[in-house]
Design a protein around this nucleic acid. Structure first.
Length: 711
DNA sequence: GAGCACTGC
């Protein structure tokens, strides 16, 4: 039996002899059984918002016995208590496991009791797709048209009317509304759902609603009820933050999930995952689908290759492997929801996209590596870092729960019980590990003081300071202490994008290149447009050549976008060119939105034609802090010094990323403009264009002087 | 000469 496992390829230290041993260790340790919950209404990852999509959803989420199913929801058992608590308190916390029905039922309960009075009820969600599907579900349950009493609002799509009393919206949308009206006067009840996820937007909203409650009392306006809803969370922290408000716990309806822990520490989790997959594969019936949590595209592709190799000789049914990560084109993601042929087992290899964002049916068995790829930010150099870390306890439980959505299941954890206990219970909230300039600009625009603004977990003062300095340099605020928006800052905050990018758009008329700047900023604000599958890398790179500009990556992206707009059959064209149709479509929607804001601000939209250096100079107006200079003696074919050939304004060393357009350029440009400084294996400059050093003096004279003095 | 987790306006 051992010999067949020598087929393991591409996995480090894949030693045949310990395959069996590890495998047995993982399986023997039935540590404890826990009950986890049944599914809620959140639907699968259905992308796009066209008409077909909505019809499909309505069909799927409205079973004939919907009213019967509703009656059994745990939340309805506490209905009268809930109404009473809401009447008596300004704020409350509702803890409910998945399947308790809180997201769909609580707003209906409030509306049926007319607790919202003359105002309306807002329910926030962190994700677009969930926002839309839940709103459709609730409209169906209330037997009304969507956009009537029940509506939703997400970016690019507002399906509400003056009649709307229950409005589902993304937390980002409510935040945008708060800029226009920080007291959120049209709402009498605001429900912040999925609070445990602690996204930047929800964290900010906690503070906004808290201040709005107080201010409304001071101004003798109608009161604002706030309900915080969450699965599991650090209740004490939240309670303290919300002045010891009452907490109601809801039971979830649950299927049991049996948890198995590894007995000993696994040195190589990829290898351990493969061992576990094939151990289980040999014993479990083929209808039991597997879900394996991994960290990224490369890892998923590598494990997929190994599974296919081993499966050729391993005992057990046929295997269908489905990769699932956000960067995978939508058409390929859909494979995950297709039932495999009779007698074939589906093995889904997913990133933490499968943890909360999407739900896969029929998963009976979760294999959890216990790791996640996390992005952190360095205040001093502005460098971001992607690294694999052990995920928090809450994430481990969330992953295990994915096995018990439709029936009892099992979760195999490739880490020990001691390891689990040593983990932090919750992950670090996003707000303490990301760049803050966009958030701070938004707060100032909403009339808040970013320094005293109440946050549950405050970022370091260094981080806040760095963002204020940047906003001052961008001309958005007048001073770092007691900051007020400048006229430019006010315009910048009108754009739903990073302030560095809105500054580019506002500077573009001066360079006569707003046409091009809009396209480029839209692409930069979207996701990566290139898709490079491992096994077709050569071909993908060859196809990419036709877009590449000697000026660098920015013009290359512009070329891609322009050709995309001209292409008659866009889906087909994207497939042929290894481009993401979804992300390019998204970019063109963003461009449309940005254009209408520019027109509202009376900016002159003109094209610079072939004078593309105008566009690069314009980019520098927003990205002037992102310059790097070639190290002396490091040009041409010379050996790299330190960590890279370029050095940034903050003194960080970095190299041009090998996938970039300028990587093979010789001689290397003496100065470059980069969009991102990302540390993966080494620090790399991403999305880079060549610039003339003296351009910086015109784009940001003050900054250029300081920068020159310190270099 | 390497590879980018996940959301959102």
């Amino acid at each position: 039996m051992d010999s067949k496992y020598s087929a393991v390829a591409g996995v480090k230290d894949a030693k045949t002899n310990n395959f069996k041993r590890k495998f047995v260790n993982i399986i023997e340790n039935n540590v404890k059984k826990v009950k986890l919950s049944q599914p809620d209404y959140k639907l699968n990852n259905v992308h796009g918002t066209n008409k077909n999509y909505k019809q499909t959803i309505v069909k799927e989420i409205c079973p004939v016995n919907m009213q019967e199913a509703r009656k059994r929801l745990p939340v309805l058992m506490v209905r009268s208590r809930l109404i009473q608590e809401i009447r008596n308190n300004l704020t409350m916390i509702l803890i409910g496991e998945t399947g308790s029905g809180k997201t769909t039922q609580v707003p209906q309960i409030i509306h049926e009791a007319r607790l919202e009075g003359l105002g309306s009820i807002a329910v926030t969600q962190p994700r677009r797709v969930a926002t839309i599907t839940i709103a459709l579900r609730v409209a169906a349950e209330m037997n009304t048209e969507i956009g009537g009493y029940v509506g939703y609002s997400v970016r690019f799509e507002d399906v509400t009317s003056p009649k709307t009393k229950v409005k589902y919206l993304t937390d980002g949308m409510l935040l945008r509304e708060a800029i226009m009206d920080p007291l959120l006067k049209k709402y009498s009840v605001i429900i912040l759902d999925e609070a445990h996820e602690r996204t930047v937007n929800t964290d900010i909203l906690f503070g906004i609603v808290k201040l709005a409650q107080k201010e409304r009392i001071v101004k003798k306006l109608s009161e604002l009820k706030v309900i915080i809803m969450s699965a599991t969370m650090d209740v004490d922290t939240f309670r303290k933050y919300f002045d010891n408000c009452p907490v109601i716990y809801l039971e979830g309806r649950s299927y049991p999930v049996t948890i198995y822990h590894s007995k000993m520490k696994q040195e190589d989790y990829q290898y351990a995952a493969l061992c576990t997959i094939f151990q289980l594969h040999a014993t479990l019936p083929s209808e039991h689908d597997f879900l394996v949590f991994l960290t990224g595209q490369e890892e998923i592709e590598s494990v997929m290759y190994n599974i296919k190799q081993i499966a050729k000789e391993a005992p057990g049914p046929l295997i269908k492997v489905c990769p699932l990560y956000a960067g995978l084109p939508a058409a390929k993601q859909l494979q995950v929801w297709k039932d495999p042929p009779q007698g074939t087992r589906k093995v889904v290899l997913a990133t933490n996209i499968a943890e909360a964002s999407v739900t896969i049916p029929r998963i009976k068995c979760v294999i959890d590596t216990g790791v996640v790829k996390e992005r952190t930010w360095c205040t001093r150099t502005g460098a971001e870092r992607l690294r694999v870390t052990r995920c928090a306890g809450a994430a481990c439980w969330q992953r295990a729960g994915r096995a018990g959505r439709t029936a009892p299941g099992a979760a195999y954890r490739l880490y020990t019980v001691a390891d689990l206990k040593a983990r932090p219970p919750h992950s670090t909230p996003e707000i303490v590990r990301c760049p803050l300039a966009p958030t701070i600009l938004l707060l100032i625009a909403a009339g808040m003081d970013p320094v005293t603004f109440p946050l549950i977990d405050a970022p370091s003062s260094d981080s806040i300071e760095a963002s204020l300095v940047l906003l001052k340099e961008l001309g958005a605020i007048d001073s770092e202490s007691n900051p007020k928006l400048t006229p430019i800052g006010k315009k910048m905050s009108a754009f739903p994008i990073d302030p560095k990018y809105s500054k580019i758009l506002l500077s573009a008329p001066e360079y006569g290149c707003l046409e091009e700047a809009l396209s480029l900023v839209a692409v930069l604000s979207s996701e990566n447009v290139f898709h490079t599958p491992m096994h077709k890398r050569e071909e993908a790179l060859k196809v990419k050549q036709k877009f590449i500009s000697p000026l660098g990556d920015h013009i290359t992206l512009l070329n891609v976008f322009k050709d995309f707009c001209k292409a008659p059959l866009k889906k087909q064209w994207c497939k042929e060119n290894y481009l993401h149709h979804k992300n390019l479509t998204y970019a063109s929607e963003i461009r449309h939105q940005l254009l209408s804001i520019c027109q509202r601000l009376n900016l002159t939209v003109s094209s610079c034609g072939n004078a593309l250096d105008q566009l690069l100079k314009c980019l520098l107006c927003g990205l002037f802090t992102n310059c790097a200079w070639l190290r002396s003696g490091a040009g041409g074919e010379g050996k790299s010094i330190g960590v890279g050939r370029y050095v940034t304004a903050s003194g960080a060393g970095a190299s041009l990323h090998p996938a970039g357009a300028l990587h093979t350029a010789r001689p290397l440009p003496p100065a470059v403009l980069y969009t991102e400084l990302l540390h993966t294996r080494r620090p790399y400059l991403l999305t880079v264009s060549a610039i003339q050093p003296h351009w910086l003096h015109r784009a940001a004279p003050e900054y250029a002087r300081r920068c020159h003095a310190s270099r």
